[in-house]
Computed example of a mutant assay.
Amino acid sequence: MVSRSRLKSILAGIALYAIAAAAIGYFGINAYTGRYGLTAQQELDQEIIALTSELVRLKNERAEGEKRVALLRSERLDPDMLDERVRYQLDFANPADLVRKIPAR
C-alpha cells in the first residue's frame, strides 16, 4: 500500500512536469511561428518597406498630376499644355508635326 501511494505521487509529479513542459513548448512554438511571432514580424517589416516605397511613388505621381492640372486652371492657363491636351483628346496633329506610326506587336 505504501508503494502504491508513493508510485501515485511520483506519477502525479511526472504528469505535472509533462503538462508544464507541453504548455511551455506550445507557447514557445507559437512565439516563433504564430500569427504574431518572430517570422510574422519579419514578413510584416518587409511588407511595410514595400508599401512605404509604393506610397512614395504614388505621392510623386499625384504631385506630378496636380502640377499638370494646375497648368490647365483658368486663372493660369498654359497654352502649350492646352494644345497638348486638345491634340491628345481629339486625336489631331499639327500639319507641321512629324507623325510616325508604330506597328502593333
Score class of each variant (00 low, 15 high):
1 M>I: 12
70 A>F: 10
33 T>M: 00
54 E>I: 00
29 I>Q: 12
28 G>C: 02
103 P>F: 03
27 F>E: 08
74 S>K: 13
27 F>H: 03
88 Y>K: 14
53 S>A: 10
59 K>H: 03
14 I>G: 03
30 N>Y: 00
28 G>I: 00
88 Y>A: 14
98 L>F: 12
41 Q>F: 05
34 G>Y: 08
99 V>T: 07
37 G>H: 04
3 S>P: 12
13 G>Y: 13
86 V>L: 15
21 A>N: 03
17 Y>D: 03
50 A>S: 04
80 D>N: 12
2 V>Q: 15
13 G>Q: 07
14 I>Y: 12
60 N>A: 09
46 Q>W: 10
43 E>V: 02
61 E>S: 00
89 Q>I: 11
76 R>E: 13
104 A>C: 08
79 P>Q: 10
39 T>A: 09
101 K>L: 11
43 E>I: 02
2 V>W: 11
23 A>K: 03
58 L>P: 01
101 K>T: 06
58 L>V: 01
65 G>C: 00
24 I>N: 09
22 A>T: 05
55 L>W: 01
2 V>A: 15
98 L>C: 09
86 V>N: 11
82 L>P: 05
104 A>F: 01
58 L>N: 10
26 Y>V: 13
105 R>T: 14
12 A>Q: 13
87 R>S: 09
103 P>Q: 10
52 T>P: 04
90 L>P: 09
102 I>L: 15
9 S>A: 07
92 F>N: 10
102 I>N: 04
56 V>K: 08
46 Q>E: 11
25 G>C: 02
40 A>M: 00
33 T>P: 00
86 V>M: 15
91 D>V: 13
35 R>P: 03
9 S>N: 14
59 K>D: 15
21 A>R: 04
52 T>C: 00
44 L>N: 01
11 L>A: 14
41 Q>S: 02
32 Y>T: 04
82 L>T: 12
39 T>I: 06
59 K>R: 14
34 G>P: 01
99 V>N: 08
86 V>Y: 15
